[in-house]
């Protein structure tokens, strides 16, 4: 039972990342009708916002110590982070909390990048076939990841969770199991709660604000909303920016779980597309539900008991489910009737 609970937690955690990326993908597809293969790159760029903030906070002054030399004969360097020199303990605290602190930096950056991407490139492809959209956004994703690689290198760059949250919670004791049997990292629990909060904010924005209502109306019938004198295009641009922010924040908070590298966006992109298809193209609740569902199924498929019966199932389960869903219910779990069915 404890093993099952742990896999559910793993699945929810993984599903949370899928859901956040898929949510943005669905928002863009639902509003602009664009299949955005650069969305994984936005997730990666969010992660690199955290890397950048971490690097800025750890920017060091270098003093040479002539009394000590490196093995190649130059004087040894004494490095001290500038924020620690300036702010003392508060500076050290800022470095410790660099990942949560990055959120403040990532929101405007990702919004700006999203708007620039939409205005600068994507809008020219609204009326082009989906194949063209996929090609250009995929190309953009490759360009972005190569730029990141040239600046940050190819190796993963670890980002630590704050020291206070670096350990694990013994959920076994809380849930009535033997102590030590259900141990789960604090940061993964925080990631799950953070994802739920972001998903809640996006849904509340769309459901309970006038702006969100107009966006939803535009998603349902763009032409009629335009006839009412509303500039729906402008709002959709903001929605693109919002989707970029959601992907970016997912990336920022994921950095202590997975040390970011230039390729992490691609790793998540394909799976997130499968999530969107399974959930139903254009369905926001579908994207979220499918994200969590596929995350959990993938975790269970990785259990030794399952792999012993079906070797390799952990690597194909998501695609297998997608095939079944597309065969049985082409519009996805919660997709609108008619979408992908004609």
């Amino acid at each position: 039972m404890d093993a099952i609970l742990l896999q559910i937690l793993n699945g929810l955690d993984k599903g949370a990342a899928y859901a956040l990326i898929a949510l943005g993908l669905t928002l863009i597809f639902g509003t602009l009708g664009v299949v955005n293969f650069a969305h994984g790159a936005l997730f990666m760029l969010g992660a690199f916002c955290a890397v950048t903030v971490g690097k800025l906070l750890k920017y060091e002054t270098v003093k040479l110590d002539p009394t000590q030399t490196t093995p190649w004969g130059s004087p040894a360097e004494i490095r001290t982070p500038i924020v620690e020199e300036w702010f003392g303990d508060f500076g050290a605290l800022m470095i410790d909390y660099s990942v949560p602190f990055s959120i403040l930096f990532a929101i405007p950056i990702m919004l700006l990048l999203g708007v620039l991407m939409e205005r600068g490139l994507i809008r020219f492809f609204y009326k082009r076939p989906h194949a063209d959209q996929i090609l250009v956004t995929f190309g953009l994703a490759i360009v972005v990841q190569e730029i990141i690689k040239s600046q940050f290198g190819a190796n993963p760059i670890p980002q630590a969770a704050p020291a206070l949250l670096a350990g694990s919670a013994d959920l076994g004791a809380v849930l009535g199991f033997d102590p030590g049997t259900v141990v789960y990292p604090y940061w993964r629990i925080i990631y799950l709660l953070f994802s739920a909060l972001i998903i809640g904010i996006v849904f509340a924005f769309l459901q309970f604000t006038t702006y969100g209502m107009v966006v939803r109306a535009g998603m349902a019938d763009r032409e009629t909303v335009g006839l009412l004198g509303i500039n729906i295009q402008k709002r959709f641009t903001v929605v693109f920016g919002m989707a970029a922010v959601v992907a970016g924040l997912a990336g920022v908070m994921y950095t202590p779980i997975l040390p970011p590298d230039y390729h992490m966006g691609m790793d998540f992109l394909v799976l997130s597309f499968v999530v969107v298809v399974v959930g139903g193209m254009g369905s926001l609740p579908g994207a979220v539900a499918a994200g969590f569902l596929l995350g959990i199924l993938q975790s269970f498929a990785s259990m030794n008991e399952v792999k012993n019966i079906l070797p390799g199932i952990d690597q194909i389960i998501i695609y297998l489910i997608a095939v079944v869903i597309l065969l049985v219910r082409p519009r996805g779990l919660m997709g609108r009737k008619g979408v992908m069915e004609s």
Binding site: A3, N155, I257, S299
Partner: peptide, 30 residues
């Protein structure tokens, strides 16, 4: 694989007291 959590959690209650990570590069880091 990127996220190895689903492979690591079964170790917790497997009775094993050593984890050998036959991984290299990015897999090892993760």
């Amino acid at each position: 694989a990127g996220d190895f959590s689903q492979y690591i959690t079964p170790v917790l209650n497997s009775g094993a007291d050593v984890l050998v990570l036959n991984h290299y590069g990015k897999d090892m880091v993760n």
